[in-house]
Design a protein around this nucleic acid. Structure first.
Lengths: 191, 191, 191, 191
DNA sequence: TGTTAATCGAGACGGTACGTCCCGTCTTGTT
DNA sequence: AACAAGACGGGACGTACCGTCTCGATTAACA
């Protein structure tokens, strides 16, 4: 039983558009709730009613897509890993996400409460996908007893390093394939 | 011929101490130049005379050690990589560095000028060490034609992922060894 | 149709009180917007929302009374001039006005924009009152063709000189009467 | 017996020139000791060695001429007063003095110590001249028992009012003559 | 069909911090 | 001892945002 005026969808749309525009124009750090409200033609209260902080607002409106989709079986561990790597690269280098990621990460790391919500909504889903991939490989007899957390770090870490720790270069297009090969070799999969 | 009153070492020391204290107490994001000045008993101008921004001040006073020391030859590529991995872990998880890294990274990523200075002072030195290690391995006949940038990402990325993307856990103590093994396997080094 | 939250009268009151207190305690030059805000328990923005500068704030809150009231007809030019003189003395030597006047005058003289607003709000009203007095005298046949600007300078100038150019003395209580006599004599009014 | 290096006249000259230039360009309020030192190619200490404050520096280098010269006897009180009036107008509206006067007055009024030195060096000499003029008139039998302080205010005040309280207008060229006539009339001198 | 309650845009509120300028003092090496 | 240079601790500037609050005006679901 919801009483009172319902929230307007127009506000959500206008804010999302404003956030994406501003991320492109001025970046995450210079983006402020005040600027978003002004650009969207929306009151600040309308934003605070929906999100607790800039980080949550940006994450929901500009970074978080439909989550990591269920993994398609390519027949080999290496193929599955390459496919997952592609998704990770796509997610982190998406037009509106890329300029937001470092700032977002900093805000998340600084606020434990935020870290919790973020981990359960993002990292966990990625790890679940990876778990499924490793289970399949085990069933195929390719590799056994792999540590999902380690494999996850081995896959996500280098992508992140290329995008955000290497001076801002574009990652090479064959990065997922090379990473998948390296991870497979590390897991002892014969070629 | 240096003219005018020389800069006081007392100021450098007091600022460094204040930065470290404040990083521990309130973290990088909440640390402000104003708070540092007040805590250090120093004028703001004295800080701006030395550093252009909060990021540079924190990096120089709390993160940047003596740089990555020259690599000791352990006799095997795997050993050398493990030693380098140890150093990276130590650098990123040092008491005052760890809470500062994500915010620092965000500031660096947002400011191209900063990114340039940072890259040449930090990333480059790490890559040079890695290049030396790979050269040695090639001379030994262990591995040939490895891409230093890729190997660097393969080493640094997972460490970063464990420390800052995994929800804040402590990395397992054998992480450098496991990483070295994985990287060596990926480079085709026989066990 | 006034939109947004209306300005709080509490702020106006608290600022006015703080300005008056600080004028008494430390004078106009040492009074800063920052000190006023702190003393009044008010944000600096709340002050800048209302006034463009320290000079405008002080003038409105501590000097500008209800303006010069309409002149009562005393029956003679000399009487009218003495009454106006009394008002000028009262205005310039009022408890909170006196310490503020020299600094205020300096700020006004330095800023043409301020000079314009100040002139129209203060000097003009005084000159209008004087014009009315001179018109009356002309109708009575006491004096004709007097230059209001000259008479104004003849009245206001000496008061100012006594108060602010003479080393800070208290003006003699019969100053308005003596001035009125002098001005009347200068205009050729017979005694 | 002066020991050590004597003060350089070069410094005095360079500072005086810099003060006058800066008064013209940016006015008294925006003029700072720091700007003067930079413009004059002089250390700040060299300025503080000579003057206690901006007000004293400006007064000595840009306003204070040779003092009010001894009064020439014109044969009538009215003539003498007009001559003194001319001098006052010339002093206050001199190129470098005029923009400095209001600010200077404010600083003087705010600092009692400054007020003392200023009064004895400036106001007193003007009053002495006026005293001489009134003595002469008394000896001639033109006027007796005039109050020098009142007459001084009657002469200086209106000039000040025209120059600094009237919205920045140029005073009419016949102002000294009209003032002299008014003052003479007020003193009961027959035409 | 009113009443009620949550929403809306707008913008004021007390604060904190920014990066700059200047204060008046102090500390260099040089003249 | 004075000189040019410039660092020192401190204070204020005017601006931008923070997250909260208070307005009048909408907009639905409940009574």
């Amino acid at each position: 039983m919801n009483r009172g005026r319902p929230r307007s969808e127009r506000v959500d749309g206008a804010v999302a558009a404003a956030v994406r525009d501003l991320l492109d124009e001025i970046g995450y750090q210079a983006l402020s709730i005040e600027k978003v409200a002004a650009r969207a033609g929306v009151g600040k209260a309308g934003i605070y009613r929906r999100w607790r902080s800039k980080a949550e607002m940006v994450f929901e409106t500009a970074v978080h897509g439909p989550g990591i989709a269920p993994p398609a079986d390519t027949g080999t561990l290496r193929g599955d890993l390459a496919a997952l790597g592609e998704r990770i690269v796509a997610l982190l280098s998406a037009p509106h996400a890329r300029p937001a990621v470092p700032g977002l990460l900093a805000d998340v790391a600084a606020d434990p409460a935020l870290a919790g919500r973020f981990a359960s909504g993002f990292v966990d889903s990625e790890r679940a996908v990876l778990g499924e991939i490793l289970d399949r490989a085990e069933r195929r007899g390719e590799a056994a007893g792999a540590d999902p957390a380690f494999v996850h770090a081995l896959l996500l870490g280098p992508v992140f390093a290329y995008l955000f720790l290497g001076g801002g270069d574009v990652p090479p297009p064959d990065l997922p394939a090379r990473l998948a090969a390296a991870v497979a070799a590390a897991l002892g999969v014969e070629e």
